[in-house]
Amino acid sequence: MSTAPNQNANIQVGNWFSEFGDELYSWAVYKTSSKETAEDLVQETLLSAFKAFDSFKAGSNPKTWLFTILNNKIIDYYRASSTKKSINETELLGNRMDDENFNSDGHWNRNPVAAWANEEEHLLDNAEFLEVLNSCIQNLPTAWRNVIVSKYFDHKKGKQISKELNITSSNLWQIAHRAKLQLKDCLDKNWEN
């Protein structure tokens, strides 16, 4: 007796998830710096795999296939994170960053160099520091976080990032700048040695 096609797809995709789930999830966490988002993206990947199961060619590599779907989901997610609306929503925080750091003449309100920056050599080997940095990145507004991850994790070029996020170059510089001011501020507050 043959199983119904739907049920077959269901079982197969479920098995693949058992086998490759951790890898898919880890990749999604790495690409988004957000556990919740990563869970959602893996879930959407399974759903798409289930729906498109008939297009999967027997004998090809299921892991590659799943990763292709996941990467497309990640691109969609990046694009959705940087709509005009979501960028505007971060404008207020951005202005606050500017005001906190600079006076109306454009001078620094206080010395911008924090104590943590003087530990240079040890910092990059310091697991605790990197963990604090990690949570600072996770707490950035989504659109800002994606700019930072695309640039410094993925080493993408500015042009490519603005294309993927569908924003102008000057918008990109502004976001990168504010995101870094925010990270700096977060480290100033949360890192004590």
Binding site: L124, F129, L130, L133, I137, H155, L183
Partner: peptide, 8 residues
């Protein structure tokens, strides 16, 4: 920048 890259 270096710290973010190291973390990545």
């Amino acid at each position: 920048d270096q710290a973010i890259e190291t973390l990545g």
